[in-house]
């Protein structure tokens, strides 16, 4: 049996519960819908306060991407291109089988435009790490290769017995010195 809400605490619970429940009720509608009916601003503000993001459009990339691999190619003058891992720090390889967090990073930053602003700082850090290793001169170049395998249509898979098609993309090559300018050695006055 429910208690009678006489006490201040009970009133607070009722108030908070009602507000949060109303927020959840509105959040059943996908984000574009809430924005079209004009309650988007209110729900955004409440989300910002509680950090309870209600955006459940999971598995967006599933129909498109079958497999992903990302790597760095470094070329020093007069030497053969070298293949390196893309994970910072340490330039470790892109995990295979894929790791959800690295895949999400690669999808957002490299494949889509959502977070493409993160590409340049990432490449600058890569260059800084390569220079710090002492194995590459500032004139060496670095390129980021992204191998995305896109799933064929189901009809295509049935006919061709091939799941996906490779569509590689590259960023670069960039000179290490341009990405991470070498700071001049401190000199004695």
């Amino acid at each position: 049996m429910a208690a009678t809400p006489h006490r201040f605490r009970d009133r607070c619970i009722l108030f908070f519960g009602t507000v949060h429940l109303a927020f959840l009720a509105v959040s059943i509608l996908p984000r574009p819908w809430t924005e079209s009916i004009g309650v988007g601003t209110v729900t955004h503000a409440y989300e910002a306060t509680t950090t309870c993001l209600q955006d459940w459009s999971m598995f967006e990339t599933i129909p498109n991407i079958h497999h992903l691999d990302v790597r760095l190619i470094v070329e020093s003058p007069g030497t053969a291109p070298q293949r390196l891992g893309m994970r910072l720090p340490g330039l470790r390889p892109y995990p295979q089988p894929e790791h959800a967090r690295y895949r999400n990073w690669a999808t957002l930053v490299l494949l889509r435009q959502d977070r493409s602003d993160q590409r340049e700082p990432y490449m600058r850090r890569v260059a800084a790490e390569l220079l710090k290793s002492g194995r590459y001169p500032p004139e060496a170049t670095v390129r980021l290769d992204c191998e995305a395998w896109y799933t064929r249509s189901l009809l295509g898979v049935r006919k061709l017995r091939e799941i996906a098609v490779l569509r590689p993309t590259s960023m670069g090559p960039f000179r290490l010195a341009d990405l991470a300018p070498v700071t001049p050695q401190a000199t004695n006055p």
């Binding site: 059943i28 819908w33 598995f59 990339t61 599933i62 129909p63 498109n64 799933t151 898979v157």
Partner: peptide, 26 residues
Amino acid sequence: QTVLDRLDSQFWLSGEFMGYYLLSHN
């Protein structure tokens, strides 16, 4: 919300989603 969101998705409405899911990176 997930179900309502999928009303916009051709993969769900056509019933092809699970086919693509089982071929995907997931």
